[in-house]
């Protein structure tokens, strides 16, 4: 197993090197210092910024410099738009913020989605199934923004006003004490992040349920199901043991492939709830032409993406004996 993971890591090294190369080249199509200084910059200013960013070095040196930063997770460069903050500090504060929303959303959505899908597949074609699917399609069809705005208004703003502020657990914004910082308690987490998580859940459940239902329906028509019934297995046994283990393969694919998109894709949520997570910071950096932040964040996101791909392969191997480890 460890050999398998090590091999997967090694195979993905060239992929990562390529990604970094493309990112760096794309960011240097135009002289990055102009982003900060504008077109009226004097040569002296340009030179000083170039020097501080290491942009006067040969490209190869810059390339290895960035790789070293990623490997050691040490980004010393100062952000251009957040004066005084290093890129490393911003990463360290925003990654836990993003994970605090995405991990619970993703995990709960997968678990609840699979459960609803099982119910729908069990009653396939009957009223229960139809109603569940109509609700799922309805949930998918409404814009993300509607959920966020309505969620903020009815989930936090109105009740807090009505109850005088103290007795309602949900905050209007999701920005509170750092998730991992001092003063962080489970209750803190609940009050600041529960509402975004619930909204995220509602949004993703529609898609997830429909996908998982399709998986279950497909699995339930397989021959091994009939075999299991013919052996005298009860219906719950057939569904939760035989079917679910086979369905784990597409379920893992789905969960893992949505993970990277959730980190950046929760941008709307992070903006509306004022959560300085990765998506929020990256969008800010892009609008402010914050070169060091863009470069650092994209490099780290690419690394996270590759790690999830490797984790997916490992999970496949754990679930499906047909995936060979060697």
């Amino acid at each position: 197993m460890w050999g398998f993971i090590a091999r997967k890591l090694i195979y993905n090294v060239p992929v990562y090197l390529g990604i970094i190369l493309i990112v760096m080249l794309a960011l240097r199509v135009q002289d990055p210092t102009l982003m900060k200084l504008g077109k009226n910059a004097t040569p002296a200013q340009i030179e000083s910024v170039s020097k501080s960013m290491g942009l006067d070095q040969p490209f190869v040196i810059q390339y290895f410099e960035l790789l070293k930063n990623v490997v050691t997770f040490d980004f010393q460069e100062e952000s251009w738009s957040h004066g005084g903050k290093s890129v490393g500090e911003m990463l360290k504060s925003s990654i836990p913020m993003s994970l605090a929303i995405t991990v619970p959303t993703l995990g709960l959505s997968a678990i609840i989605g699979v459960c609803i899908a099982l119910v729908a597949a069990y009653y396939r074609g009957r009223a229960v199934d139809r109603v569940l699917m109509i609700v799922a399609v309805l949930g998918m069809s409404i814009s993300y923004l509607v959920y966020i705005i309505f969620g903020q208004f009815f989930g936090a703003f109105l009740p807090r006003q009505a109850l005088g502020g103290e007795n309602w657990p949900f905050e209007i914004t999701g920005y509170g004490p750092l998730f991992l910082g001092e003063g962080a308690t489970p209750m803190n987490w609940v009050s600041f992040y529960m509402l975004p998580v619930i909204i995220g859940l509602i949004v993703s459940l529609g898609y997830d349920t429909r996908f998982y239902r399709a998986v279950m329906v497909e699995e339930s028509s397989r021959d091994y199901i009939t075999t299991a019934l013919a052996k005298g297995a009860s219906k719950p046994k057939v569904i939760f043991v035989h079917m679910l283990k086979n369905a784990m393969i597409p379920i893992i694919t789905r969960v893992m492939s949505t993970l990277p998109f959730l980190i950046t894709g929760a941008v709307l949520m992070e903006i509306y709830f004022k959560i300085p997570g990765m998506g929020f910071q990256l969008i800010n950096a892009l609008t402010n032409l914050d070169f060091p932040v863009i470069q650092g964040f994209v490099a780290v996101l690419a690394a996270m993406f590759i790690l999830t791909v490797i984790a997916t392969d490992v999970l496949y191997a754990l679930v499906d004996p047909r995936v060979r480890l060697s």
Binding site: Y224, T226, T227, K245, N246, V319
Partner: peptide, 17 residues
Amino acid sequence: IAMIFQEPMTALNPVFT
């Protein structure tokens, strides 16, 4: 009463020994 099926390739569950 026990039963065996036409397709031995698919009648067994692929993820159990």
